[in-house]
Amino acid sequence: MTRPVRSRWILPLGLVAVPAFHAAWATQYLSVAEAQRAMFADADAFHVLPPVDAALATELGGAGWSPQVFEAGKGGARLGWFIVDRVIGKTELITYALALDATGAVKAIEILDYRETHGSEVRLAAWRKQFVGKTAHDAVELDRDIKGISGATLSTRHVTEGVHRLLQLHERALRVAG
């Protein structure tokens, strides 16, 4: 039995009043091509479908909404649809992929990338400074080392709404077109 790796708090120095700030956090999980392979392992082709009709797009997602729609196929037969869409929350921008099977049922959802829309370099510098001398690493390395965030729960309501919108899109434009 190895000894468990210990945990510790690293508190900021003093009570420096730093302006409200979030270190902008961004993670990429999958590229579009990786997600296609992961969600349709059997497919041998992904055909790009033409952009969604502007009137329908505006009705479902508002002006400028333009999800990227692919048809996944194997040997000429349709396996389903692969759709990439983005949703903007109060503080974040999420790109996700939705896989629908040939009947239009949800097969899988994967987050492709997540980025916070807050944060500025100036504030980041102020935040880093507080940790100077507190750790073995230098302060600049500190935020590069950060592997995750624990904070107020991020709601994925926007993703849920986005999926519903794409199901509408399938119902009204993809299913019949096929």
Binding site: I10, V18, F21, L142
Partner: peptide
């Protein structure tokens, strides 16, 4: 803006 960091082991 002055939130702490935690070093998390197991």
């Amino acid at each position: 803006g002055d939130a702490p960091v935690i070093e998390l082991g197991d």
